[in-house]
Write a protein that binds this DNA or RNA. Structure first.
Lengths: 193, 193
DNA sequence: CAAACCCCTTGATTTAAATCAAGGGGTTTT
DNA sequence: AAAACCCCTTGATTTAAATCAAGGGGTTTG
């Protein structure tokens, strides 16, 4: 139920069995069916979600109803609309499941209580958000200075297994391309040009 | 010398005069002249820099010697090659001053000691990196789903005063455009089209 | 089992932005 | 004070990617 969560936690901050028991009280398991929403835009985001099993995505929808995927959430990853979570303003992102999934949710009050009472949780959170920041910085660097093909290559190098679990059109959206362009790039790359 | 640093610190985490004195021991003031490097790619980044006064930029250089600006650093902001700082691998970014500047540097050892001994410093760091993450997430959302004009508008809305302190070609680089394109957008926007 | 849906690819055309070139004007350096 | 440099703009052309359209094939639903 929380196996992977504590495995990842211990990678970042080793904790005792006692601390683990303490933290468990703040965690809420949740299952999602494929295509089921975890968060819809306009609602306040009231949790941080850790993915024990499955795959999620976070995306915004623009005025042409185009979905822009900003984040995937696979096993071991954390996903949220963090701005909404922290400020309690309405979310701008939607989050739903790409396959049946099992999550560990941390509510706002649990989050704040643990920050106050469990120093290793604050360290875990700082390291988590630092890792997310670095991933995003790297991503911006790539997006700003790369061709479409380079973007796809970079994505595949970074996440070799995601392509098998996520539709091509979602990968295209995530890296800022159209599905047709991605299709042409894939053809070109596979024919060795 | 550390006035703005503690002002920003207290905004995030109020600290006592005693804690402030304690933290002061870990801080190192530094002045940079305009165009002077703080960091060059290939060197390990050994500090986190807080900008008391002035303006800096962080950028990478691609194989065509094109500079891609990933971050500006104005008063009140923190700037570093964080990946290099944390992993001690060679930096991929350069950081230099756009005007004469005064900084507060935090070395790796100071950073780690304060994390261990001053809980409010860990909170300050977590809140800092969380803010940076949210800014970057918002930026990725904009870059992926906007036209060139929308990108510039968004930049100007977010940072109305930066345009007066930073050359246009650097703003163009930061938002992923060429100077010529930015110039045409500015002309179009100012003529009310 | 058929209809409906979804994913992906391909071709043709359009378009937003890049690239290349040139020049005006202000600032900095010698 | 002049040369050198830098910033910015504009025009012309090219190009990478988007858009539009169409269709094949697999999966899901009724």
């Amino acid at each position: 139920m929380y196996e992977l969560f504590f495995e990842e936690f211990n990678k970042k901050v080793p904790i005792t069995a006692e601390e683990q028991e303490q933290i468990k009280h703040y965690l809420t398991p949740k299952k999602l069916r494929r295509k089921q929403y975890l968060l819809q835009e306009g609602d306040v985001c009231k949790f941080i979600a850790f993915v024990e099993k499955g795959a999620l995505r976070a995306y915004s929808v623009d005025e042409n109803f185009t979905e822009n995927i900003i984040q995937f959430g696979l096993e071991g990853w954390t996903i949220s609309d963090l701005y909404s979570f922290l400020t309690e303003e309405p979310a701008v992102y939607n989050i739903d499941a790409l396959e049946d999934s099992e999550l560990v949710l941390i509510s706002k009050s649990a989050h704040e209580e643990m920050l106050q009472t469990i120093p290793k949780y604050e360290t875990y959170t700082r390291l988590n958000i630092t890792g997310a920041y670095l991933a995003m910085q790297r991503r911006i660097t790539t997006i700003i200075s790369s061709t479409a093909e380079e973007r796809y290559q970079d994505f595949i190098n970074l996440y070799p297994h995601i392509a098998q679990r996520v539709p091509q059109h979602m990968i295209a959206s995530y890296i800022g391309l159209t599905p047709e362009t991605l299709s042409r790039i894939r053809k070109k790359l596979s024919s060795g040009k």
